[in-house]
Amino acid sequence: MTVLLAVAIGALYACGIYLMLRRSLVKLLLGLVLISHAANLLIFTAGGLRRGAAPIVRAGEEALTRPHADPLPQALVLTAIVISFGVLAFALALFRRVHQSIGADDVDRMRSTDT
């Protein structure tokens, strides 16, 4: 699966980068989401992939029994997912506001601070 995921991560990065280089602000945001997914998967994969071994201590035991999935990358990715959602929500509200003000989706028309 690592090989397949590596290809998927690369594809997500490529799509994300391409979208972020577009002039449309919406596409830029779509690209940002794709790159967030890719980065999360990158960290997740780097921690090692394991099936059926969730990092949850079984009832009656005091510690995780091996083999178990690495809990640390999961905690990091969880934080990243939530934070990137916060960023996206703010960016979307900003986009809506900008669009109301200048009536365009084109980043090139947002170069001047005066509307």
Partner: peptide, 24 residues
């Protein structure tokens, strides 16, 4: 041009994941 950059970046990340999968 952007497509070339994007594919370069994506390919690089794929390579990175493949390399990193053995470093835990």
């Amino acid at each position: 041009r952007d497509l070339v950059v994007a594919v370069l970046g994506g390919g690089l990340m794929t390579t990175l994941v493949l390399l990193a999968s053995h470093v835990q």
